[in-house]
Nucleic acid binder design. Structure first.
Length: 625
RNA sequence: UGGGGUAUAGCUUAAUGGUAAAGCUUUAGUUUUUGGUACUAAAUAAUACAAGUUCGAAUCUUGUUACUCCAGCCA
């Protein structure tokens, strides 16, 4: 399984730790409490000192970022921000065989999109790599320290095959055995190591190992490999090196070099901590205090797991390679790229991360939390529009009685009820309309508030209409509704009271579009990729739990004209998305965004998430009715 | 079966020897031109188990159980 580095940090000022009055609004998670202690002790400096918290997000550039990484990113960056420190973005590029420059670009882009700025980052984004650190920048220093360890008799070159090394490692219950090369002279190891570095040793011909304890109950301490021979070019250092450091040797040193105070990582590295401590201590052995290198404090937290998804790189790759999804940025994928294309906002992602905080408990967070976070954010900021996804024709039979039968009247619609400043827009209404197929039932249950034969509903911002006739095709399918409208209900307002003072009421309000002006669009409706909370748990194969209905493409949807986000909306904050993605709430249906597949002739909208739908829930409870 | 880690309500998280709390979920209601949002209320429900220390234990100790990570020249 691939790694998942540490993660995120705090976050928005609104959920910050303390108000001016002093009382904390939220409890502090264990890493914050730990840092509080460090500050109280003056461990890395005094409060307010920028060195007091230094973190880093250390991905390997060998794949795409996903929600799990987002959590790590949030943790690291928010901690730095909260304490006035800083956070590095550093690539752990110690394995040239698996890494690629392509991934560093996408990762840099994703971190920026999430809204975080690393130490030395170019605010404008003109130089995307500004301030970005690479483990490979430190290869020379690591090499020199390795030589030191060899000379101190703390490391040796082992020239056995990897199979022999594995056999000697022992098992979980049996100690390992010493390599025949373990006690060779430092000069000899040094000579062999230099040969490895020069490229005089074939791949797999030798490794440099730390001399620790072959009998340790902690497998990581049984003389771990520090360097292996890889006669391969590196995406940054070219052919400079023929040996590359192992993660365990390199990682702690990178943190040390960068002055990282809190090396935040996931739980599985807990058993590696003694090794990282050993390496630093080994380098510092025999050095005077001022010569000693910095010793970071590693702290482990539980990675984020979301139900109905899987964070495994292997599984994701399989989905992509087998064509189960359209790519790494398929909107159903929980990659950062996928979620972005789905329409998820970085603000929602950050809010979800902050909600859970940091713990050591391996929790399974409900996928609904992500959906809630998205609804929460988009409810406040998404401009409203009307889009009929599965159209049913409605003819207003008395439209001609109150004016030209071919006329179109402009109705005023509110752009965002949560944001008065977002203003209004004009939506055309006419004698031929479309409503949602699901909003009509010929044989409706009592609690169905929408349109039924003889029933009256409000068309939002339009008029009230009453259904008088249902037109069916040869197959018995409803193809058209003949309705009348009440000209006294313009804008959707209730008609004046009658002579006795009774006001007519209507329970249902529907969205609609006018036939001659509506824009045909393609709508992609996404559902969860898997049907099981823990995909693959039951059968061992995640493909068994794939949701066959995770994508539905609807081609004949109809969107109101002039749907583009307006300047008035943007300046009020509604529809002002920093990433430039156009997002909307299609009234009564959900949040949608424009997909990059859109062309001039064909607009494509992705459904990010539905609105909560208590009717659907109730109807389902009644067995489909 | 060696070592490390974790365990509080359906889910996620608080409580740091002194009344087990909150959010989400659920249910009911109010408002509403989105069966959305907001607001109100209710509900039920938890310290994995067992001992010990203590006036008092979710918290400290010991044991047990369950889950999880570790035997790459991956990260």
């Amino acid at each position: 399984m691939t790694e998942l580095p540490s993660d995120n940090a705090i976050d928005t000022p609104t959920d910050g730790a303390e108000g001016a009055g002093g009382a904390p609004e939220r409890s502090r998670h264990f890493i914050e409490q730990l840092i509080d202690e460090h500050i109280a002790q003056g461990r890395w400096g005094t409060a307010g000192d920028p060195t007091v918290v230094k973190t880093r997000f250390p991905p390997e550039p060998n794949g795409f970022l996903h929600v799990g990484h987002a959590k790590s990113i949030w943790l690291n960056f928010s901690l730095a921000e909260q304490y006035g420190g800083s956070c590095n973005l550093r690539f752990d590029d110690t394995n040239p065989l698996k890494e690629d420059d392509l991934f560093v670009r996408s990762i840099v882009n994703d971190v920026r999109w999430l809204g975080f700025r690393w130490d030395g980052c170019d605010e404008t984004g003109a130089d995307p790599l500004a301030g970005v650190k690479f483990a490979s920048d430190y290869f020379r220093r690591m090499h020199d320290w390795a030589i030191e360890l060899i000379e101190k008799g703390l490391a040796y070159v082992d020239e056995q095959s990897s199979e022999d090394v594995r056999k000697q490692r022992g098992t979980l219950t049996e100690p390992g055995q010493a390599s025949p090369f373990r006690d060779r002279k430092p000069e000899e190891s040094r000579e062999r190591f230099e040969a490895m570095v020069r490229g005089d040793v074939p791949d797999g011909g030798a490794v440099l190992r730390a001399k620790i304890d072959m009998a340790s109950p902690n497998m990581n301490l049984r003389d771990p490999v520090m360097y292996r021979v890889l006669n391969a070019p590196h995406h940054r250092t070219g052919s400079d090196w023929h040996v590359y450091p192992m993660y365990d040797w390199a990682h702690g040193l990178e943190d040390s070099i960068e002055g990282v105070t809190n090396s935040i990582c996931t739980l599985e590295f807990e058993a590696h901590r003694p090794l990282y401590d050993w390496f630093i201590d080994a380098i510092n052995r025999g050095r005077s205090d001022p010569e000693k290198i910095h010793h970071p404090q590693q702290t482990e937290f539980a990675r984020l797991s979301l139900s109905y998804t899987h964070m495994s790189k292997r599984y994701m790759r399989q989905l992509v390679e087998e064509g189960r999804v359209s790519g790494w940025d398929d909107p159903r994928m929980v990659t950062v790229a996928g979620m972005r294309r789905r329409g998820v906002t970085p603000e929602a992602l950050r809010a979800m991360c902050a909600e859970g905080g940091a713990t050591k408990f391996n929790a399974l967070v409900d996928f609904g939390r992500l959906e809630n976070a998205v609804r929460d954010d988009l409810n406040k900021r998404a401009p409203r529009r009307m889009c009929v996804i599965r159209p049913l024709k409605v003819t207003i039979t008395n439209w001609g009685e109150y004016g030209d039968a071919g006329r179109v009247e402009m109705m005023t619609a509110v752009n965002n009820p949560e944001d008065e400043g977002a203003g209004t827009r004009e939506v055309p209404f006419g004698g031929t309309l479309y409503i949602e197929r699901d909003d009509f039932m010929e044989d409706a249950p009592k609690k169905f508030f929408r349109l039924k034969p003889g029933g009256e509903v409000r068309l939002r911002y339009g008029y009230w209409i009453t259904c008088h006739e249902v037109v069916k095709d040869g197959a018995g399918e409803v193809v058209e509704l003949k309705c009348t409208y009440d000209p006294q209900t313009k804008g959707g307002d209730a008609p004046p009271a009658d002579a006795e003072g009774n006001v007519r009421k209507v329970k249902g309000t529907l969205h609609w579009v006018e036939a001659s002006t509506a824009a045909p669009v393609e709508v992609r409706l996404f559902d969860r990729l898997y049907t099981a909370e823990r995909p693959g748990k039951a059968t061992g194969d995640h493909l068994d739990d794939l949701n066959p209905d995770s994508l539905e493409i609807v081609e004949g949807a109809l969107l109101e004209p002039n749907w583009r986000t307006t300047e008035v909306e943007r300046s009020s904050g509604t529809g002002a998305f920093a990433d430039g993605i156009e997002r909307f709430q299609f009234e009564r249906q959900g949040y949608f965004c424009v997909d990059p597949d859109s062309k001039d002739g064909l607009l494509v909208f992705n459904r990010t998430v539905t609105l909560k739908d208590s009717w659907a829930k109730a109807a389902k409870g009644e067995g489909g009715r």
